[in-house]
């Protein structure tokens, strides 16, 4: 926590904590602190304050009673706050979309606890169960995805038949499946690639087949970020000037730096993992992007690809 706690934050916590404690006729201080993410001192300060809260004319019967005694929290006469505040629309969406997303993953029981929780939550937030929001985490062969997830959680190496978009080749690799994740609407596998001798990321929809082996692997404590692209120290950087129509690049790809050039134009410092990827991006951006700086083999990548393509059309 780097941000200072504000009065709003404390109010949000109180409005959830008060009905929870009151409904139970008291609760252990430790448990309340663990559940509502605060320290005992913070809890004490909030309760002391709550003790003088209430409604006009602030006679004892119109005040909340709240105190801490022998490691227990007691709250009563807080009838205004007998129930928690409704969820904000965004909170309702986060819950429903999250549950929907997981239910779309192979292996989740469509009638299990999560599905039942989703149905109840949908009612509580005023949504019609089964309507209003659909989430797809990515296109992938369900068999391949299930095989990877099973191997990752049981800790076994997998053998992959993989098509690389960059090199345009099929390869078979042995991989320690550290993490299976969805980002930007695609599924990825991150793990140690024994063929390359280093960690790699694979798009699941380009894995033609996955076979779990009986060889166990150790998952390192830090498996790296669940991101579609991971910045590697050695990745070259190109500097691009983007017209307003191409400004989306700054939000869509991880960039090291963005500068405003005025008139909606941007200058971005873009790390490049594969030359093929950059060529593809530059051809798509066409005259909306200008390479200002970068290693020669990358700076000319877009122009070279465009010239090559043009010869086919003439």
């Amino acid at each position: 926590m780097t941000r200072r706690t504000t009065a709003d934050d404390r109010l949000r916590r109180l409005l959830a904590l008060v009905p929870w404690v009151a409904a139970r006729g008291g609760a252990d201080v430790d448990e309340v602190c663990a559940r509502f993410g605060c320290t005992e001192d913070e809890l004490r300060a909030d309760l002391e304050l709550l003790f003088v809260c209430g409604v006009h004319p602030f006679t004892p019967d119109a005040l909340v009673e709240a105190w801490l005694e022998d490691g227990r929290v007691h709250i009563s006469y807080a009838d205004w706050f007998r129930r928690p505040l409704r969820l904000t629309p965004a909170q309702g969406l986060v819950l429903v979309a999250t549950a929907r997303a997981l239910l779309s993953v192979p292996g989740t029981d469509p009638a299990g606890p999560l599905a039942r929780a989703l149905e109840k939550v949908a009612v509580a937030v005023g949504a019609e169960p089964g309507e209003g929001v659909e989430v797809e985490l990515g296109e992938a062969d369900r068999g391949v995805l299930a095989e990877l997830q099973a191997a990752s959680s049981s800790g076994h190496r997998v053998e992959l038949d993989y098509y690389s978009f960059g090199s345009d080749r099929f390869t078979t690799r042995l991989v320690d499946p550290w993490l299976v994740f969805s980002s930007g609407g695609s599924w990825y596998l991150r793990g140690h690639d024994h063929r390359a001798g280093e960690p790699r990321r694979f798009r699941v929809d380009r894995i033609q087949a996955a076979r779990a082996t009986d060889q166990p692997f150790e998952r390192p404590p830090d498996v790296g970020p669940a991101e579609a692209y991971t910045r590697r120290a050695g990745d070259p950087v190109v500097v691009l000037d983007l017209e307003p129509a191409a400004a989306w690049v700054a939000g869509h790809h991880p960039v090291d730096r963005v500068e405003e050039l005025g008139g909606g134009r941007l200058r971005v410092h873009l790390p490049v993992s594969e030359p093929g990827w950059l060529a593809r991006l530059l051809v798509r951006l066409g005259p909306q992007a200008t390479v200002v700086e970068g290693p020669p083999e990358l700076a000319g990548a877009g122009r070279a690809a465009a010239a090559r393509l043009l010869s086919r059309y003439r």
Binding site: T98, S182, A226
Partner: peptide, 30 residues
């Protein structure tokens, strides 16, 4: 914005008595 999952869970379930973290090996970002 205004979509704190932690606060939503306080309201719905009174938070969690023990820290619940994602299972090793699987996550998703929307």
């Amino acid at each position: 914005p205004e979509g704190s999952a932690a606060e939503a869970l306080w309201k719905l379930t009174g938070g969690a008595a023990e820290r619940i973290s994602a299972p090793a090996g699987s996550t998703a970002t929307l």
